[in-house]
Amino acid sequence: MSLDPSFVGRTYPPTAPYQVGREKIREFATAIGATDPAHHDPDAARALGHPDVVAPPTFPVVVTMAASRQIIEDPALGVDYSRVVHGDQRFAYTRPVVAGDELVCVNTIEDISSRGGHGFLTTRTDVRTAAGEPVVAVWSKIVVRGEA
């Protein structure tokens, strides 16, 4: 699977704002077994200085995975999603995501390479509030496996 290297450096238009709900954070925390009260109880989160319940560290993937469809489904890039496996993932936080955040994602293609018949695609997603405050930068590398 070869991906067009001319896409490196391409930045996509900002996504529509994602409204982070308190119940979504609770649902995600419950699904991963995260029982700290700050994920569930607004008062516990406020005691730590946050305006509402705090999302677990990997929660932003809920937002960025939806946003990355912009790239994955870009017909000009031509990723075959049925052959995709997850390579690397990284989050660099300015602050944790909290309920009430309205998050906008800006996707940039940082790197495209191929090796051993497989394609590698690294994206960076800058996640900011609708007001422009940076929250977290998210890097994701996917592998598009070649035909065996």
Partner: peptide
């Protein structure tokens, strides 16, 4: 899901940190 494994590792990290909001950078390769 790779991200489920990463989420469990994130639980371990926040438990070690002793705070649910203490992680400033977190990266893995699957």
């Amino acid at each position: 899901h790779g991200m489920f494994t990463m989420a469990l590792v994130g639980r371990a990290v926040t438990a070690w940190a002793g705070a649910p909001d203490a992680v400033v950078d977190f990266g893995v390769r699957f």
